[in-house]
Amino acid sequence: MAPKKVALSWSGGKDSCMAMDKLARKGYEIACLVTTVPKEIGRTFGHGERTEAIMAQANALGIPVAFIACTFDTYTADYEARLKELATEFGFDAIAFGDLFLQEHRDWGMGVAEAVGIEALYPLWMAPGDTLAALRTFVDSGYRAIVIRTSDRVFAESWLGRELGVSFYEDISSLGPAVCPMGEGGEYHTFVYDGPLFRRPVQFSKGAVVQLETTKRLEIVLG
């Protein structure tokens, strides 16, 4: 029987990468990556990343990426309309999300999938208390990622650009229960650039640090 085709909501970070890996291990075929780009910003909705960086990831993975242009006011309607078109174009009958435990995010994704007439998958869904173990799973997975965005409330600028390795795992473990080790509360975001499903690494360097309203962002410079 042919593998089930799914679209994957793709932020460029570790959670969507872990979802992709888990789906692949279960025999699913990733038909395309789906990334939202609000018209008001011109960068990805999830992490504020440039679309060129997402395209570089998709090319390194050998998976097509589809950008969904949307506005804040009509986000859900724009998403549903474009997702319906993509389901026909790529022939998928499910969309997977990398959410971990935030129920309102899951409810939104399931509502979107129902409106489009496809299934919503949450391959990483877990209890909040399981997030430290999930981070260790990523650290040991062979995928490589760096921190590209941090909350001023939680982290000093020195956390930007850090590899998600053993030292990162140990340091974030020491911060206590107020900080989600996986950053599900927006504490930090990441950029994945290599790993088992990548055909080649994404070549990049670390650019300038940009201060935003409540967060700092490390720019990714391709090449």
Rank of each mutant, 00 (worst) to 15 (best):
Q211D: 15
P123C: 07
K22R: 15
E29I: 03
T36C: 11
H105Y: 13
F72L: 12
G98L: 05
A120S: 14
V192K: 05
L135T: 09
A133D: 14
S16G: 06
P64Q: 01
H47I: 01
A7H: 01
L132W: 04
A113V: 09
Q203H: 13
L132I: 06
K216L: 08
Y75S: 04
A87E: 04
L212Q: 15
D107K: 13
A127D: 13
L83D: 09
L102R: 14
T35Q: 00
G12E: 00
K5G: 09
Y75Q: 08
R153I: 03
E85G: 07
K22I: 05
C180H: 14
P181H: 07
A145I: 03
L175Y: 09
E213N: 12
E157C: 04
A31M: 08
L102P: 06
I148Q: 03
L222E: 02
V221A: 12
V166C: 03
A120M: 05
A120V: 09
W108D: 05
D78T: 01
A94L: 01
K84A: 13
D15M: 04
I54A: 01
E170D: 15
A60N: 09
A7D: 01
L124P: 02
L164M: 08
V34T: 05
D140K: 15
S151Y: 00
F67Q: 03
S167E: 11
A7C: 04
P181A: 06
G142M: 12
R217A: 08
M55Y: 03
F92T: 07
Q203C: 09
D130M: 09
P38K: 10
